[in-house]
Each structure stands twice: as structure tokens, then as C-alpha cells.
Nucleic acid binder design. Structure first.
Lengths: 223, 223, 223, 223
DNA sequence: AATGAATGAGCCTTCATTCAT
DNA sequence: GATGAATGAAGGCTCATTCAT
């Protein structure tokens, strides 16, 4: 028992150290030696436990995605108020992306994986991203009301996602511009509230414009 | 003269090849040999013309940023209709980010640089990003009307930027989800129109909510 | 008792698996892990039972040589017909070298050991090869009749040995040339008969040429 | 000019050092570091000049085979005395196998390659072995006279080849038995003469026995 | 201005071996 | 008696960089 615990300790330390290093340096820049050094393990430990560097990376991605799972019940209830559902979705995503909790490197890792995908992207795509996307599209459809052009729904959903993920993707730039948000729970909640409200306004306007999505006459011209 | 021409030709071929390779592979994955091969130049050419690999990368970034500059006059005119200014800004940004024109790798390169900043980020930050950000904040202020909490303005501006850059950052995922936008001029214009309208709706709602940016009573609860 | 049985069983499985793997891959290419895997034993089993990889190899060599021992009585009888003795010797050697019986890897192992000797060669040299060589030299001496230059005897004996071992050493090439002999008992007997007859012819001619072993006048020149 | 000479010097030193090391240690045991050390070159030189370790090995094999080529004209003349042709063939093969000339490692290398073939065997098989084998079969056919069973011809040819190659393959054992032949030109000539005469005797006997190649009645029984 | 050869550091991986149960 | 985890030493290879023309 204790042996097993002990034996898995190295496994876990490796996983944690790898998450941090991969998130900080990226897959290529991260070296197995640095990871093992940080985990207090031998270089060969990676090979023993995960096969190779890529296997360790895959394990880290699976782990971070598993740890980030928080199936908020209100999201899944189609009868709940759609505005509440949207807020819950946005708040969850902002937390995933910016929270400094246990897997603090989750957001950074995902950002890298999106910009520079590896083979491992397919795993989290199917297990995590696609289901979430489906939920969001459902919420947006509710808010748009009458069945509109699917492209409108998709674009509105992407507008929401874009506001959330850019908080992570653009963070290095935002920090340099002095506009980075704090990352405590209150600030995150406040940010989520803004994005929710902003999006409700955006969706409402999209609803009013109907299926007309090229609309240069409403934007380009003035009276 | 001709020698200089010849030399400059190699210099340019190196720059173009490096842009493509850096954008495709990332700074670390890109090898000097591949770049030189693509440019039809010798391995030592990079060191000769640019000092080292990092110098070439900096040169590429400067070049791509210079080529992508298109100071739309309507943006700079504070007297123009703010909705038009917003539309011009968004359209320009979408083009920068998704356009397949000459420096087709501009968007990919910037996306990488944001997620995984190098020393070169500071250059383009000061020369390109900060000025643009100032313009956008001005436009949003106009649209918000009365002077509100600066945080609201910043968040609205980031909501706009986020919708644009995520079109690049999330593109690999969007392609896999089957929701990636086409990249011809018409599609880009349509997308820009959506983001503009969506943002006008969002800003309008933010304006109505006033300085209250935590707003849990409007989002979280219902009667 | 049973523990000992069990232990001995692992010991044996290890020996068999190692024989096959060493013969197929060679000492260096063979990995302890593959051997243990094939034997259904733990990685540490080799070190436990045999000290180290080299110890296992030595044990395999001793075992294969012990199993291949078949002291044909007719060989040891100096009064038997020398032609029969030669045939028995050749047939036995061909079987050792090509037979697919239990220690099917005996021949392959010895071939490797000859070309790329390890410390273990000395063991089988003293225990197996030198005695056999003595027997063969005795047979050839009988066939040559009058006492000739010892060098002639040795060379004739080597001509016999060479014909036999080359059936193993050259087998990969023979297979590619499409001239490899089948390895059933009948084919082996037929091959042994050829080598015996060929050698009787060779020895007879060597006998007639007497001690003259340079013989350029018979081979190189003609009028 | 001189630069090219100089540049090829490393190439050549690498080739020579590799031949020696590969012959002594075998492909697997040989390390790139040892070869480069012996050649006074950097580790990366192998990669630069030959792609990788296997490429270097292939180059060595091609080189040794090229250097060992000595198309003795008398071999190719079908009108020459067949006994002379056989002697020339055997003498050439013995020299290739035992000679200490320039590519002194030729014989050892080929011996390893036969016992433990690598992908490179196919190269020398087609370029060197198969043609030689064809010549030898032609000579043996001449000596056998009337058209016999092809199997007899092949077996006689293999008896000749076996006597030659075993001088290399069994050399470690022969040295330990104290029966290894010296390797000066005179000793080689004497050895070649023995094998030629021995084989002429063997072929003559095979000819007399006709196509009967099982011949147990001549070997196993006596009146 | 430009080249091809050469360098040295460093990375991932593999392997035989040992240690604590 | 036997195991699974862990170790440290190489090994092959790649890469950016430099040197002598």
C-alpha cells in the first residue's frame, strides 16, 4: 500500500513538474532533464513511467483537462434561464483560463496547444472542447430565440469564446500594456460579469439584425 | 551596385523564407538550415547577414509589422462617426489577422509571439500594438459617451480585440470543429461586420449598466 | 521443494529464452528486457539467477554445448574404418551446425562466438572444440596413411571443418543466392555424404602429392 | 584544389578509422565517438559526411569492396585451363580474406556481415558476391565435365568457398588452437595451393560418383 | 559577399543494473 | 524467491555557430 503510494509519488511529481515546465517553456523548449530535475527524479524516470517525452506531455494534457472538469449542473439544464446559463458558462471558462488553482498551468498549456497544436490536441478536442462547444451553441440558440442562420449562432458563440480565451492568449501583451486583470476570485467574477453582459448586448443586436450578416449598410454608412 | 543588388536579393529571400518557416514551425522548431534551404542560400548566410538566428527573427518581426501597417485615415479622424471608426478598426484587424496577402505569415507570427513572447515582442509592442490600442480606446470612449470607469472602457476594448485575435489563435481548433471562416475578402468583410455589430450591442449594454461592473444582480439572480 | 521447482523453472525458462534471443540478435543486440519478457520473468531475474548479462550468456553457452554433446562411439574407436569415422564425424558436425532440434540456436550461437569471440569462447574451446579437433586430426592421419608433414594433416582437417561450418556461417548469403540446403534429416545426410566424399577425394590427392604443399608446378603453370 | 584535398582528408580518415573499428567491434559495439576519436574528427562529422552511423557503415562496406576488387583476367577467360582458373580464384579469395594489405579489415568485416547481416549485405551481395559465385560455378562446371545434377555443382562450389571463408571465420579459434596460418604472401600462396589441390581431388571424386549424391552405400557400409 | 567543412554543446532515449519491499 | 521502481552511464543524433577560404 504504502509502497504503491510511494511509487506513485514520483509519477505524480513528474506530472506536476512537467505541467509547469511545459506551460512555461513549451513542448520543444522544455527538456526532460529540467522536468526530472524539478521533480527530483532521474532522467530515465520519464521513459519508465510515460514511455517518452511525448507520452509525458499527453499525460499532462489529459491530467490537466481532467482536473479542470467541473460540470456545473446549471449548464446542462436546458430549462434554466439562458442568461444564467451563459453567465455560468463564461464564469467557468474564465476560471479555467485564468485561475491560479491546482493546475495553474492549465490555461497556458491550452493556449500553446491551440496556437501550435501537437498530436495531443485531438485528445482534448474530443474529450473537452467539442462537448463544451455544443453546450455553448445550445445556450446561444436559446438566447437568439427564433431559428436563425446557423452561421450567426456560430459567430456569436465564437465572440463569447474569443473574449474568454483572449484573456489568456493576450495576457503577456496585456501585462505590458498595464491592463491585465487581477486573478483573484472577485476579479474573475467581475470580468465574467462584463463578458456576459457584453455578450447579451451583442446577441440581442444580432437577433434584431436577423439573418442579415453582411450588413454593410448598417455599419459602413451614416445618415 | 550589382553586388549590392545581389546581396540584397539574398537578404530578402532569407527574410521571406524565414517568415514562412517561423510562422509555420515556431521559433524553436524552425531550423536555420531549413530557412537557408528554402531561400537557396548557404547555412552561414544567416549569421553573415543577421548575426544569428535571433537577429533574423527580430528582422522578420520588424519587417512583417512594417508591411502590415496601413494607417486607415478614417481611424485617425476623431470627428468621424464612431461606428464607422469601429468598423474600420475591426475590419483592419481582421484582415491583418486572417488575410492571406503578401506577408501571409503575419498573423501566425504575432499569435505565437503573444502566447510565447520573445524579446522581440517589446519592439512590436511599442511600434505597433500600443498605438493601435490607444486608437481603439478612443473609439470605445466615444461610443460609451459619458466618462465611465476606465475599467469598463478597457474591458470593452479587450472584448473587441479578443473577438479578432481569437479568429487567429483558435483557428486550428476551429478548423477541426468545422467552423473556420473562409479567408476571401468577402468573408472577411462579413466577419468584420458581425464583430462590429456584436460589439456595438455589447457597448450599448455596458453603457446602460453604467459604472456598475460587478453586476451580479443582473446576471446571477432572477426573481 | 516446490519453491525450488518453481525457481528452477524460471531458471530454465530464462536459459531457453536467452538462447533463442542471443542466437537471433547477438550478445550486444539482445536486451535483458526482451529475454525476461520472453521468459515471462522479471527484469531483475537475470541478475538474481546469473549475476549479470554476461553470466547468463556463459550459462547459455555451457548449456548449449552440453546439450549438443553426442559422443558417437564409432568416432572414438580407432580400429573402425577411417572412412566410416570421417562420415560419422562430418554427419555429426553438420547436424550440430544445421539441425533444428531442441537447442536450435546452437549453431547460430557458435557461429557468432567464432566471428566475434567473447570470454566465453575459451570455455567451449577447451571443453568441446579441442577434443573434437583431436579426434578429427586422428581420422585424417589415418586416411593420409604414412606420416606426412603435420601441416598437411592440419590443412586437410581444416578443409573438412571449413566445409561444415561454412554451411552455417554463409547461410544468410546462401539463402539470398537461393542455394541454401533444406534442413530435414535426409537433406542433412545427403549433404554430409557429399562433404565426406569430397574430402576423401581431397585427402587422397593430398596423399599423392606427398609433403609438397606449395606445388606451383601442378597448379599455376602449364607449358 | 588544396582545400578540396584537405576537406576530403577528414572524409577519408573517417572511412579508414570506421573500417578498423567496425571490423574490430562490430556494427553495434562500434561507437561513433570512438571512430571520430580515432579519425581525429568531431562527433558531428559523421552526420555531416555520411548522414548517420548506418550511412558511414554502408560507405565503409562499399569502399572495402571497391578496394578489394581485382578482376584477375585469367578468371574471365573460359578458354584457360580450368585448373588454373580454379587456382586463381582460390588464391584471390584467400588473399581477400586473409591479406593484411590496405583494407586489412575487409575480411573481418565481411565475416561479420555474413554471420549477422545488416541491410548493407544486399549491396555487396549484388555487386560482389553474386558475380564471383557465377564465375566459380562456371569453373566447377568445366572441371566436372559432363553436365551433372546442378546440386552437385553447387555443393562442390560451396566446398571451395567454405574452405576459404572458414580461414577467416574460424581464425579466432584457429589462433587459440595454434593452427592459424601465417599471413605473408608465401604462406597465402601455399594455403591456396592446398585448397586448390584438395578441391581438385574432391571434384574428381564427385565426378566419378556421378549424379549420385546420397551415396550412403559408399560411405556408410564396408564389405 | 559567400561558401562548405568542421565544431561542441546538448537532447532524447536506451540499457544493464540495483534497491526496497 | 521475486518484483517493480529507480538509477546513472552512454549512445546516436541535431543544431546553431564558426573558420578558412
Amino acid at each position: 500500500m504504502q509502497a504503491r503510494e510511494e511509487s506513485h509519488a514520483t509519477f505524480r511529481r513528474l506530472l506536476d513538474a512537467a505541467g509547469e515546465v511545459f506551460a512555461t517553456r513549451g513542448y520543444r523548449d522544455a527538456t526532460v532533464r529540467e522536468i526530472c530535475g524539478a521533480a527530483g527524479a532521474n532522467v530515465a524516470a520519464v521513459n519508465y513511467h510515460f514511455g517518452d517525452k511525448a507520452g509525458l506531455y499527453r499525460a499532462v494534457l489529459r491530467e490537466t483537462h481532467r482536473a479542470a472538469q467541473e460540470p456545473d449542473p446549471s449548464l446542462l439544464d436546458p430549462n434554466a434561464d439562458p442568461q444564467d446559463r451563459l453567465h455560468a458558462f463564461v464564469h467557468g471558462m474564465i476560471r479555467k483560463v485564468l485561475d491560479q488553482g491546482r493546475p495553474s498551468w492549465h490555461g497556458r498549456l491550452m493556449a500553446r496547444e491551440m496556437v501550435e497544436p501537437t498530436d495531443a490536441l485531438d485528445i482534448i478536442l474530443e474529450e473537452s472542447i467539442r462537448p463544451s462547444w455544443g453546450v455553448l451553441v445550445g445556450i446561444v440558440s436559446q438566447l437568439l430565440g427564433q431559428p436563425l442562420d446557423a452561421a450567426v449562432t456560430v459567430r456569436c458563440a465564437m465572440s463569447i469564446v474569443g473574449q474568454c480565451v483572449s484573456q489568456r492568449h493576450c495576457r503577456p501583451v496585456m501585462e505590458r500594456l498595464g491592463i491585465a486583470e487581477p486573478r483573484d476570485a472577485a476579479a474573475l467574477a467581475s470580468l465574467a460579469a462584463h463578458i456576459t453582459q457584453y455578450s447579451l448586448g451583442g446577441i440581442e443586436r444580432a437577433r434584431r439584425l436577423g439573418t442579415d450578416d453582411s450588413g454593410p449598410e448598417h455599419t459602413g454608412g451614416h445618415p
